[in-house]
Each structure stands twice: as C-alpha cells, then as structure tokens.
C-alpha cells in the first residue's frame, strides 16, 4: 500500500504539471512544472520526503532506459539528417565538449573563490 500511495502522489503531480502546461502559454514542458511543484511540496513539508522517496528512487534508477524508444527514433529521421550530416556531427560533438568544460570550470572557479574568501574571513576573525 505504501508504494501505491507514493506512486499516486508522483502521478498526481505529473498531472498537475500537465494542467499548468495547458494553462500557461510558455514552451515549458509539464515535467518541469512538475519538478518545481514537487520541490515546492517537499520544501513546505506539504509532501514529506518519506511519502515519495522509495518510488522516486526506483523511477530515477530506471530512468536511462526511458530514453531508448525516443533514441531509436533516430532511425526515422535519418532521411532529413543526411544532407547536413557533417555540420550536424561537428556542432553536436564540438559544442557538447566545450560547454561541459566551460560550465564546469566557471562553476568551480566561483566555488573556489568563495571558499578562499570565507577562509580569509575566518583567519582575520581569529586574529
């Protein structure tokens, strides 16, 4: 019964996300509204963590497989892909790698400067 209730809560939030998606004219998918709703629910303790945790862990664990059907769909878009295959591959490969490096480096830089600043603050307090 525990899992039934957890799954119901998660599906209910997904449904609420769909309703918001229908009402708000923005290109934001139902799942992102759902994510925000769930985070809000957890934060306000409206939804206790234990009320969704087990089923969430399960769904997150099997999440990678959910992309298989859509990815196999590449078979069907092969026709429209072929004329621009080379720019397609260059853009996809190059920009994915560069974006990962830049984003990681910049985030890490800010975290480290923050830490250093706090470190020196701490030292001056000790003096």
């Amino acid at each position: 019964m525990k899992h039934v209730r957890q799954f119901s809560i998660i599906l209910f939030i997904s449904l609420a996300g769909e309703v918001i998606h229908l009402l708000v004219p923005l290109p934001v998918p139902a799942s992102i509204y759902g994510l925000i709703l769930m985070l809000f629910g957890l934060k306000t303790k409206l939804i206790p963590l234990v009320a969704v945790e087990d089923v969430s862990n399960f769904l997150l664990e099997i999440m990678p497989m959910m992309f298989i059907p859509a990815a196999v769909g590449l078979l069907d878009s092969w026709g429209s892909l072929r004329p621009i295959l080379i720019p397609f591959l260059v853009i996809t490969l190059f920009s994915t790698v560069i974006v990962m490096i830049m984003t990681g480096k910049v985030t890490q830089f800010f975290i480290e400067t923050d830490k250093k600043k706090k470190g020196t603050d701490h030292e001056s307090n000790n003096r």
Binding site: M38, L39, L42, L60, M63
Partner: peptide
C-alpha cells in the same frame, strides 16, 4: 519519463 523527471526534485 514525466513522473521520473518530477522525481528529480527529490
């Protein structure tokens, strides 16, 4: 996929 994305909030 939608319910799983919702669970990313956890």
């Amino acid at each position: 996929l939608t319910p799983a994305t919702v669970c990313l909030a956890v």
